[in-house]
Design a protein around this nucleic acid. Structure first.
Lengths: 139, 139
DNA sequence: CCGAGGGTTAGACTTAGTCTAAGAACGATG
DNA sequence: CATCGTTCTTAGACTAAGTCTAACCCTCGG
């Protein structure tokens, strides 16, 4: 379990005191390439760790967000979702499945943001919607 | 009340049968330059019209969205919000107040969308966050 | 060993939204 | 004008996501 030690170090570097629950949550949510909701995190973590309460999952996710380990996304109706990739990037939402796909920052160019009158923009992203082309099924 | 007749016509053009409740809701939500939540719509409309139920407000908003009179936005935590401006544009969220500001489509240029591999993008927008510079208080 | 400060817990609570079953209004038809 | 079927509206029960609270339990320093 060097991975666990790794994660423990990461937490501590971010000023977060480790605990069994926080480690279990971190192991899942910091490593996934999905964009899980709090709900999902609770399910997944509860399966590993004997008992974790809902309050702890919410507390921990908020803590991770506050400490910059995680980013909170609200892309579609009623779904708050967590993204371990904290560096800037864009998001594509598949309308069929609801799946969220990361789009690398450099894949798009956005011009004109600094020129917006009256707005001090601290961050932005492009949110795209559509269908994922199925690339399977034809070699 | 030529405005009311106007709105009635707009509803009918979109295949929506008019009713007192729908007119009252439309009069507010199609004319505002804010981005009200369902909640707010209920409050505002209830103040004018003797009695409107929550179910009707939700039904009507969904109907308007379906018929293309309104667009649903989910920009920040737990807030589904309605925008009568249905043509493409971007959005700025003021972090201090939560206010949503429309950013005209032409104010920004986004390049690279058609080239995204594996994604059929049907729509997109830039979502910006930051502070609104206060332009008042100095003439 | 003790106490203080975090961390965790179950469960009550809140809020946004949906569902349901019943009633009211509408509009075509005789 | 009466009737009937369809559409619209309603109150209130229900659900789902998230927050709050008060008690409990670790752990670490003294």
């Amino acid at each position: 379990m060097t991975q666990s030690a790794d994660i423990r170090r990461r937490l501590e570097e971010h000023g977060i005191q480790a605990s069994a629950q926080r480690l279990a949550i971190a192991e899942y949510v910091l490593a996934t390439d999905q964009h899980p909701a709090a709900d999902t995190v609770l399910e997944v973590v509860a399966a590993r760790l004997p008992v974790v309460s809902r309050a702890t999952v919410y507390n921990t996710l908020h803590l991770f967000v506050e400490k910059g380990l995680l980013r909170e996304l609200v892309l579609s109706e009623g779904r708050v979702v967590y993204d371990p990739k904290v560096e800037p990037h864009h998001h594509f939402v598949d309308e069929a499945s609801g799946a969220i796909v990361d789009v690398p920052w450099d894949a798009l160019r956005v011009e004109g943001v600094p020129e917006l009158p009256g707005l001090d923009v601290s961050e932005f992203q492009v949110v795209l919607r559509g269908r994922r082309r199925s690339r399977r099924r034809e070699g």
